[in-house]
Design a protein around this nucleic acid. Structure first.
Lengths: 119, 119
DNA sequence: GACGTACTACGATGTCTATCGTACAAGGCG
DNA sequence: CGCCTTGTACGATAGACATCGTAGTACGTC
């Protein structure tokens, strides 16, 4: 059944519209250490990153699960690019909905990492 | 022996020290609608509030549970005052650890409430 | 078409969590 | 002292979730 709608690359992923993003879901998505780490790396690179770029200490199945949670909560946007799936922060949508929130969380995460790493 | 801990009212509650507060735990505590509502009311009053002040749509057992999650994550401080248990935001500790985080979350919650309430 | 890479889907599992109900403890008040 | 108000403790329960393993799909390359 390769005749299905293959616009750009065949598969498309469901994303919540900007207005559908819920604060509680975003906070829940960010409250997992694994996912927070992913978000920090995405923010640091300020560019699309493939799922395989991340070397998380879990299996690929679990990695897929975490990326889905991030996508369905509206934190990241995912698109297929060939066999790879690229991930990017939805900074613009989040900043529009919740100004300063993402920066505060990223700053807090950096502070905590520095505090726990050095002391 | 028994005279040791009974400074004000006899019972004392375990709180995490400021350095023990973890960002992930704070985000998780705030990701529950019930608890986020409690935090919003506490921030609005800027004063101690008893547990019974909150009229949550759950039983008292569940309310106790939510307040414990907030306390153990370091978001609120609880002290006994007679039969009542007073609750206050740990704004100073949170602001010191994660500058701007609490304000961003509160602002985001207010924005979302306004958006969902008016639209 | 065959093969490898990248990621997914599904089922299983153990843990966590939000909820309830009932029984109980601590403190104020008549 | 009895009684009420306030909140706790404990057990139960249903749902969510993080994790895994295996099998499978989509895509690029040879």
């Amino acid at each position: 059944m390769t005749t299905a709608a293959s616009a750009a690359s065949g598969r498309d992923l469901p994303h919540p519209a900007r207005e559908e993003i819920r604060l509680e879901s975003v906070l829940h998505a960010l409250s997992d250490p694994m996912r927070l780490q992913v978000v920090r790396e995405l923010a640091a690179e300020s560019d699309e990153l493939s799922c395989s770029h991340f070397d998380l200490p879990v299996t690929k199945s679990t990695t897929t699960h975490h990326f889905r949670v991030l996508r369905e909560s509206g934190v990241i946007r995912q698109i297929y690019r060939g066999t790879a799936k690229m991930n990017a922060l939805r900074s613009d949508d989040l900043d529009d909905l919740f100004p300063g929130l993402l920066d505060s969380v990223l700053g807090a995460a950096a502070r905590q990492a520095a505090r726990l790493g050095s002391g």
